[in-house]
């Protein structure tokens, strides 16, 4: 038999897993990865897997990982958009699985975009 607390734990854990099916997305952070031919060729898949792995490990609620097509800046792939609730989209470029940990920890968890990985920093170079 499950106690009330255990039931509540199951509720929360399952909700993490299925929150991407909720119609109301206002409190969801979206991680969108460019997965067109250019993105895949540049190594987007390992980046996406790293994101999912990191989100899983931290048991983050309200984060979805999805894919998108090519936005035209193929030279900057793999590109990743992170959209946190109420904030502008932040675009990261030349992503690698190694960079993912910092983006999750600093941006998604703590709300501070990792400036040096963003498209702004890349364009300034």
């Amino acid at each position: 038999m499950k106690s009330l607390a255990e039931l509540q734990a199951i509720r929360e854990k399952t909700l993490n897993r299925i929150n991407l099916r909720k119609e109301d997305e206002s409190d969801v952070t979206r991680v969108v990865i460019g997965m067109a031919t250019c993105g895949i060729a540049a190594g987007a898949r390992p980046v996406m897997l790293a994101f999912m792995d990191e989100i899983n490990k931290r048991g983050l609620n309200h984060v979805t990982v999805s894919q998108t097509g090519c936005i035209g800046m193929c030279r900057l792939e793999p590109m990743v958009d992170v959209i946190t609730p109420g904030n502008e989209k932040v675009t990261y470029v030349h992503m690698t699985p190694e960079k993912v940990g910092r983006v999750v920890a600093e941006h998604i968890v703590n709300g501070r975009p990792v400036e040096e990985y963003t498209i702004g920093a890349a364009e300034d170079k």
Binding site: K13, T14, N16, R17, I18, L20, R21, M48, M52, I55, N56, T64, V65, S66, Q67
Partner: peptide, 10 residues
């Protein structure tokens, strides 16, 4: 219970 990035509902 792992998180999946996409769910296909049939």
């Amino acid at each position: 219970m792992d998180i999946y990035r996409a769910h296909v509902l049939c």
